[in-house]
Every structure is written in C-alpha cells, then in structure tokens.
Nucleic acid binder design. Structure first.
Lengths: 394, 394
DNA sequence: CTACTTTGTTTAGTCACCAGACGAACTAAC
DNA sequence: GTTAGTTCGTCTGGTGACTAAACAAAGTAG
C-alpha cells in the first residue's frame, strides 16, 4: 500500500485487486479463474467477482476453449483489447509521430508527418491538436473508446504539462497541455505532456526486448540528447520533473550534447557535411553515415568510436549513480549501434563494476523511431495497471 | 495503493489508515480526534477506532489538556515515544557509532568507540554485534521494546544485507546481516544492513534541516565518498542496490574519490602531512585543516577551492540527472563547508539550470558525525510510518 | 454407471469504513 | 441560573469487499 497521505477505503481495495487480476492476465496469457486465484492468493469467489467486473468493463474476455486435463474444464480468460485505445504523439524538430495502441498491445495506427516548430508555438500546438483529434476520431470510428493522449516533447516539461524549455523546438514556457485541452475542446479523455525520453523509457519497459525490467535507462538520440530513468520500477521525475538532462552534463571537452549529439557526429563523421546552416533533416545524413561506416571509411569509424567513448563515459556516470540493469540506446543511435556500442562498452568497463557484479548491459532499441509516441500510449495504459479503470460503459 | 503483485484486503486498509493517523500526529503536533478526521478525510468514528488501536499499541498518548475554544474541549493526542526504541550503528574505518532513538525523535543513547576493521571481518562482526547487543540491553533496561537495528557500512551492500565490497574496511563478500543475526542469537527485532550514505540520506529526510524534502541528496565525506539519493520521496536502490557510488565516477584528472576525497584533500591542503603510511585518524587532521583555513593559508585555501570545484562538478552531474531540491554535505565536509560550498556552487551554476528554474541548494548537514547511525534508526522507524506496526503488547 | 477431480458459484460470516444520531462538556447570553 | 449554541467523541446501523466452506457443474477414469 502506498505511503501517501491519503487514507484507504474499500474502493481502493477493489481497485488494487482489479489491477492485480488485470496485470496477471496480461502477463500470464490465457488463465482460468481458478488459476488466477491460485497464483494471486485471492479467494476464488473474489476472483469471480473481479473477473465479472472486468468483463463488464470490456477489459477481459472469455475464450470458449477449455483445457483438456482431468476435472471440469476451465473457461479461459484473455485480455480484450478491442474496446479501448490510447494515443501517443511524439514531437521532434522536424516531424510528428502519432500512434494508437490498444490494451493488448496492438498498434491501431502509426502516422508520421512533417512538422516545423518554426519558433511560433501557436501553430505548432494547432498541428499537434489536429493530429491528435484525427487519431482520436479514427479510433472512435473503429468503435474504440479513447482513454487518453500523451504528447512527448524533447525538452523540460514541468509537472503541470507545460513545456518550460525545448531548444530543439525553439519553445519556452508553452502551456502545451492547457492549450491542447482548449484546442481539443475539453475532451473527455485524459491529456498529458511529458518529456520524450521519459516516455520512451516507459515504452521500453512495457514493450521492449527487456520489458519488465525494474531498472532501465533509455538514451534518446534525436535532435537533443536525453535520458529516461527507471529505477526500482518507477520513472524518476525529480523536484521539477527535470530529470535525465544528460545532454547538459559537462565532460572534459564540452557538454555531452556537443561531444556526442547527432549534429556533432554528422559533422565529424561525414567529410562533406553541409557547413552552411543547421541540418534540417537528419535521416538522409544518418543513412549516408551508415553507408560510410559499412565501407569502413576511416574518418567515419574514428568519429563513431569517439562518440561511443563519450557515450560510454556518460553512461558510466549513470551506472555508478543508479545501478541499472539495462541501458537502451534509441533514436538515431539505433542504426549506428553496431559501431557505437563496442567503444561505449569498453569505456564503461574501465569506470564501473563488471556486469556480473552489478554492471549494466547496453543494447539498441527495437521499437523504432516512434518510441516516445508508443511510450505516450503506454503511459495511458499504465494507469489501468495501477487500478485506474475506465468507468462502466452504459 | 501499491502497484505490487500483492492483492489488498482489510488488513491493508487498516494498516494504511493507522499509518495515516500516526504520521499526521507526528507531523502536526498535538491534535484532537476531530482534528485528525477533518485533516485526513477519515470519518470521526474511524479515527476514534484507529486512535484507540494506536493507544493500545502505546504509539499515541492522550494529553489531559483541553483547548480553550468554544464547545466541548478536545482531548489532545501526541506521539508516545516511551515504549519503543530503534537502534542504528555506523561503521567507519576507525570507529563505530551507535545511537538509539525513540519514536518521538529523542536520542536515548549515543556511543562512539574505536574500531579496527583489520582485514579480518570475523572480529569486526563480533565487535558490531557486541555493541548492538549492549545498546539493545540498555534500551530494554529502560523499559523500551527494541523495534529494529540497522547497520550502516561504507561500501556496496546488496539486497540481502551482505557487504559485497567495502574498501574502507578491507571487506568483501561478508554476510553481515546473517552473521549479526547469528551473533545476536536470532533477536526478535528486525536486523538490516545498508549503505552508510543511504542511511544518512534517510536521517536528513527525517531529522535534518530540510526534513520532508521529496528530493534530497546526501554526500558522505568519510573515508569513502558516497551519495544517498532520495528522488520523488523514495530512496533509490537500483538493480543490485549499488546506487550512489559517486566516488567511483571518472572526471577529468581521475575519479572523484581521488580528486575530492578526504585523504587527497588533507595531503594537498596541509604542507606537512605525513607522507609515510595511510592516515589512520582523520579527525585531528581535519581540525588542523580548519585552523589553517581560518588563518587563510594559501595552500589550504587553494586545495579547498579545488576540491569544492570538483565536488561542484560532480554535483552538477547529479543535478542534471536527478533534479534534486536539496544537496546535503556530510561527514568531514561539514566543518569545511564554509570554504567548499562557494566554489562548488560556482561550478554548479555554470553547468546546471539556475536554482529558480529547478536547480538545487547546497547545505552542510546539521546532524553531526553519526548521521548514518541516526539514519539506521530512522529506517526502522520509517517502517511504522508505512503501516508496519509492532504487534500488540500482551 | 459410479467414483473422482477440478471449476466456478452461492451462502453465510467477518471486518473496516461511513453517515448520522446522540450524549458529553463547555461557552455565551439573557 | 437557565437556555441556546457549539464542538467533541462515541454509538448504532448500514454497506461494500473479502473469505471459507458448501455445492452444483462438467468433465475423466475405470
């Protein structure tokens, strides 16, 4: 039970146990009521009552199938993904990604469109709201109730959902959550705004190769460099909500953003990088970079090794401070992981304990470029896992 | 309510609400039953029942005093510290500190004795057990029930209470908790072992000048250099429990331990420091150091400024990653804080956001040298605050 | 067809909380 | 001094959620 100042009552017991059953079914495939009772320690009668409630809420479904052992056959229960949807939107300097996910983890839609932050937040907010509105309409048209929307932004987001500072977008002090709620005309679903690295970490925890890890760090490799920190099973937020600002940390030679950011990497790894003006679209540059790396171009390999070392140094700091089990590289680091990871691991090994004594393993993300968007949906679905169920449909 | 796999039942509701009442009385001085009900939202009848239970358990006490407002006078309730005691022991390279604290925060005893780790853990364990046993006897002789014992060790302690590695003691793989339980002949009270920085952070959170802070970092300045990290109200433990190993982090020029550890500071700040052999007792050296600093000896001031800068650099990393509100300097850093803090703050200011935008304030500890011992007792008492009450006395 | 096994529901009981009534104890005012 | 008003804390009855145990349901084994 929680340590909070709030007292508990029956509703809390019910919510907790509903969540226990829901999580158990999600984690342990098709199960019978009796199986749930045996595994959770709840009484059979209680499980029956809880399951009936969850079926009413269209969160569980009976599969007609019976098991073929001795005794009365069991009616198996599985997650019913079909009634609800959660929407996540990721904002970067050059595009928006929207995804909708159902409870069973099915991806209902995955949209990507160009986006220009353009130093004028008003239009940016309109574009985000428009995309969110269309995603919600699509989900509704498919007969699904939208449970919530989370927008991931590369920058500092405070606890009220306001963007205090987002260099990659040129924004500061934009009440994104408030403006979105206005633009969406007070939707009945939940609206939240969070840092992109935080959401990507949640996505990895729920859907990644190392899902369920209680200690996981996600390192974004988008325009900015940020970290989402999950320690002891919880996402760290800190005093103002500004955790994981790893790009800002000072190493010998500059900040990590300067030493190992994507822009710096491109400029050092590609001999003919455009010297004039900022890069507006990174994807083709990264493609050229991987080609050059595969061709073993010395300058490219040197730059990748160098960036890997700096990342490794920064990750050794994180490892000494937070003792994670898993570190996931995301964004543009994923296609480059083959070259970055060995250098980073070598650097980490010299400054931290060995993996068998509490060190961390370093892996590339398998979630693709929209990790933060998926994480936005995951944040919404996580609410169900903690007992915050949708009201009964009438 | 918790997200754990455990289902909830009535006992949990009761425990949660008992803890709510207990915490409220501890935080808000003498209160009446009606006052508790109004503040917590619990029903008056429920509060009466909870209070009766807590009085039976000798955790609360009625003060005969009545308030002088209109209406029926209230019978005020306060914490009853007299029935229980919690014991904390801090182990360092050269001494043991034992404290016993009651529920109301009264320090019942504070012992300090010499200790030699001597590369032979067996005798060290005996010495700790002997001290713990005598502290427990003393508390029992005063009519108090001992609720638990926590031993703080400068080093890596895993989740089972085994010391995996403690350089300052020359220990590795010592099952300290198991050995203590054996040596104390399976005491009926709870025995735990934890990292000294973790416990000191708990002590600051419960008893320090910034008590109640939800985001607080404690930096030890004993033989080793470690950090206790409290983020979002919880102490971070990480995958193996090895968080806060800040001495091990690599900065330009060496590890933080090498750059800003007490030994390094003494050797650089005192021109005539013993060059031969390790320093066995730091206290007199620190005293000489403060004298030299007050006399504005250039070499001393330079060394302090330098160490302050390195600490500031390391703390800027922590601040960017964890966004704490408060950072507390402990151990031998406390008498030197006057000279260390300005340099550290200047360094932090250049690498982090300004305090008004989410930065951290840096202060010396006010708890004295036995902070980890006090924290050991605090860990025991924290169990009460989360509903883990002692069984009813018969 | 009978015995056995396992599932899931039903019934009765307990426990903790809540709302509202009520007695207790005191102040204020006439 | 009596009466009204206020606040405190307890008491009573009611509700919701869990549990244990009995039981009906639906199969297998022989």
């Amino acid at each position: 039970m929680q340590t909070g100042p709030q007292p508990a009552d029956f509703a809390d017991v019910r919510a907790t146990n509903l969540a226990v059953v829901l999580r158990h079914v999600r984690a342990h495939g098709p199960v019978s009521r009796a199986g749930i009772a045996a595994a959770t320690g709840l009484n059979k009668a209680t499980v029956s009552s809880l399951v009936a409630d969850l079926i009413d809420r269209r969160l569980l479904r009976e599969t007609g199938l019976a098991e073929n052992r001795i005794g009365r056959p069991a009616t198996m229960l599985v997650l019913d993904g079909s009634a609800y949807a959660a929407i996540g939107i990721e904002v970067t300097g050059d595009h928006l990604t929207a995804v909708a996910v159902d409870l069973a983890g099915e991806q209902l839609l995955s949209w990507r469109r160009a986006f220009t932050a353009s130093f004028e937040p008003g239009r940016g907010v309109s574009a985000i709201a428009s995309l969110a509105g269309r995603a919600a309409s699509r989900a509704t048209a498919q007969g699904r109730q939208v449970l919530g929307l989370t927008v991931g932004v590369p920058g500092l987001v405070d606890e009220t959902g306001a963007v205090r500072r987002a260099d990659a977008l040129g924004w500061s002090d934009v009440d994104l959550r408030g403006d979105l709620i206005k633009a969406l005309r007070k939707p009945e679903y939940d609206v939240a705004v969070d840092n992109d690295a935080n959401l990507a970490a949640l996505a990895e925890q729920r859907y990644g190769n190392h899902s369920g890890a209680r200690n996981l760090i996600y390192l974004t490799g988008e325009t900015g460099l940020g970290a989402g920190l999950i320690v002891d099973g919880r996402l760290l937020r800190g005093g103002r909500g500004f955790t994981g600002e790893i790009g800002r940390i000072q190493l010998h030679g500059g900040t990590l953003q300067e030493l190992a950011g994507i822009e710096s990497l491109i400029q050092r790894a590609l001999p003919d990088a455009d010297a004039d003006g900022p890069i507006t679209d990174f994807a083709p540059e990264i493609a050229r970079l991987t080609t050059a790396a595969r061709a073993a171009a010395p300058r490219t390999l040197d730059a990748l090794r160098d960036v890997g070392r700096h990342l490794g140094h920064a990750l050794s700091l994180l490892t000494n401070l937070l003792n994670p089990e898993t570190i996931v590289l995301g964004g543009y680091f994923v296609p480059l992981a083959t070259w970055l990871i060995p250098a980073a691991q070598a650097e980490m090994a010299t400054h931290t304990l060995a993996p068998d004594a509490g060190g961390a393993i370093l892996v590339p993300s398998v979630l693709g470029s929209g990790a933060a968007a998926i994480g936005g949906a995951a944040r919404v679905l996580d609410a169900l896992d903690t007992g915050n169920l949708p009201a009964l449909a009438v």
